[in-house]
Design a protein around this nucleic acid. Structure first.
Lengths: 217, 217, 217, 217
DNA sequence: GATGAATGAGGCTTCATTCAT
DNA sequence: CATGAATGAAGCCTCATTCAT
């Protein structure tokens, strides 16, 4: 019993290792240039063993795209749409998102590929899109509340949410260097600006001062 | 002589057709899943003839990514950084960009792929990046002027330009459906908002009303 | 363990079979007309399996040319340059070489191709040339000794060795039919004659009588 | 009329130029690696024009191998089998042959390829072989006469002729460097030695002194 | 006759998947 | 369950030959 449990744990670890390396490789080299053999080598596992844990390359890719979603989404959705001080809630949310995107460079590159070739990766895209819609809807609620309270200017909340998400993805797409979190932080004010914060008007100049020089890319 | 000219024209046309189809296929199916055979079939020519016009698949891809840049860039850079009414210049520019991005769905999807896998497509990415830097620099000039005149709020102009470009790319990434230009128009106010327009404060609510329903994606 | 050893043996056998067939085909049909597919079929294995044993066609060719060298060279070099009776040593050596060349028809045809197109097969040629030089140097020692003892006439030993080697190669080139060893034996006296044997003068007429009719080629 | 003649001359020149370059390329790069395109470029002639002069690549190769034979053969056969002083005739012949082989490096490399792959180039080989037999027969006559006169030792004249031809080919095969005629001259005594010249016994030591150092190949 | 674009057969090589050990 | 050899489909590319101009 204990042995079996141990065995099970080891296998879980192995599976995780494969998946981690697969995400890395898929994101850097794309689907076709990532061969099973490369994944196996990177994972320190024999060639054939990959098929013990994932029935096919397609499945491995699917897992690589889908499995991390949940954790990420819980962070993305970690704000209170009913918050009294909507603007403050937005600020906190934006900072949290920026931090997240700064960290998840590798995985998000994979997401970009899936979105960029959504007809090729239809299944994966549909799942990503589901979460995207969920996110926009929830954020729209918060924005609506803020608008009602006069904390942010009127605008279509779904569009605003969508634009905000696009900005995050666009930043992730554009910031190709290994850029540290502080640098990313500089974009938080601009992201917030999208929502049209009213009391925020004055402070932008202060916040928007770069904390790190914009290295010439 | 006249015949040779005619011949030459026909070849140019054929080359254009191949390139057009290649852009289409590369953007939808990615580099690896776009086979030369598919491109040939789509262009209505024989397999081997593709190699008459492009020495290798690699070269075809390169041309597909690089050749359209110039025309696009001339539109992207078509604004006056010395304009007296900076804000107005920005508005016009944003609308022009939004229109451009709305139309170039196919090609830009290809650009997204190159950026998304910049280490794989290093050469192409470097060229794209060159234009990106050029664009940000020029836009920064306009923003600086607007800030001096008090038309837009203070913020680091390079960051602002970069955020703006990211938003455009992010929108292009996220708007996967065949969405018409009117719909895209709804995002113009948000894009402008990034720059922190001061006299613009009131009008956002008016402009930001959707001209088309946000289709369920 | 035993199984793995068995496995290993089987693979070795398979590799040997591929190489043998490859030598055969390369020597008869040349590099380009010998397709991997032909080699696979001749070896009774699948197309792709050839690549399990040899990374590329180029490598297969290289192995086909190089691997047999060592064994052949040990026979070629199997004479004593310090022998007291130089002439007798030469006679024995010549017979041994003639026997060798008579037997190795297939492989030597491959060698001929490599030498004949040394700029195309530079790597292989260089290795062959190394052995050629080694051989000529050693033979020259024996000839020098024989000359000092007055058993063979004076002449530049390196030239003589080189001429001897050329004769062997030339015979192998010219004798295209499947000619048996006895027939080859008839050329031994001529080969020896190259060295200018002195006490040998009389016997040539006896030895040089053909043991087999010169088949109409 | 005159124009047509001129035209005809020009075409003949063109054909010759193509053939010359083809021999060069075939001999250096082999049949398959010599493309029609390379031949055309080397000849300064358009791609398609090659087919005006030679119906197919196969034919071009055939011409490249066969057409030079006649001239060469007339030199090879330029000795008198009835000569009174057989030995002297042989000496002159050997020198002439050695000179010929020294000069024809390129073409003979092509001959080597044909012989080396006689089953692949059957037609060409058969023609070469015809000349080879003719040559051996004629030389055998001269040798027989010399033997009768006691100028050379007894041996089967056909074998001797064959060995002699093999030595020439072998030297051509082995001397891969661009070696000048003087160097080649050093091998003449060895060639003559094959026939077992009787009055020649003493002179070998003199003749066999190298006229040029045997460069370390 | 000269040119070079068009064609497609055929070669090498890669790689996901299967399966025996 | 782990391993890695076996397989063959599919892709890129070359090149002899044809043919329209």
């Amino acid at each position: 019993m204990a042995i079996s449990k141990n065995q099970h744990l080891k296998m879980q670890e192995k599976r995780d290792r494969i998946l981690e390396k697969a995400i890395s490789l898929f994101s850097e080299q794309g689907y076709n240039d990532t061969t099973i053999s490369k994944v196996a080598k990177a994972s320190g596992i024999s060639f054939g063993s990959v098929f013990t844990y994932f029935p096919s390359k397609e499945d491995l890719f699917h897992s690589a795209v889908i499995e991390p979603i949940e954790e990420i989404n819980s962070i993305m959705l970690d704000f209170n749409p009913e918050a009294e001080d909507s603007l403050n809630e937005l600020k906190i949310m934006v900072n949290s998102h920026i931090n997240l995107f700064a960290k998840l460079s590798t995985y998000l590159q994979l997401v970009v590929q899936v979105i960029g070739q959504h007809s090729r990766f239809k299944d994966q895209f549909d799942e990503l899109n589901f979460f995207h819609n969920e996110f926009c809807s929830k954020l729209a609620l918060l924005l609506e509340k803020g608008q009602k309270k006069g904390q942010i200017r009127e605008s279509d909340p779904i569009f605003a949410a969508s634009a905000y998400f696009s900005l995050l993805m666009g930043l992730r797409l554009t910031m190709t260097d290994e850029i540290d979190e502080k640098f990313w932080g500089n974009f938080a004010p601009f992201a917030l600006q999208l929502f049209g914060p009213i009391s925020y008007t004055k402070s932008i100049s202060r916040l928007a001062k770069p904390k790190a020089a914009y290295s010439n890319r």
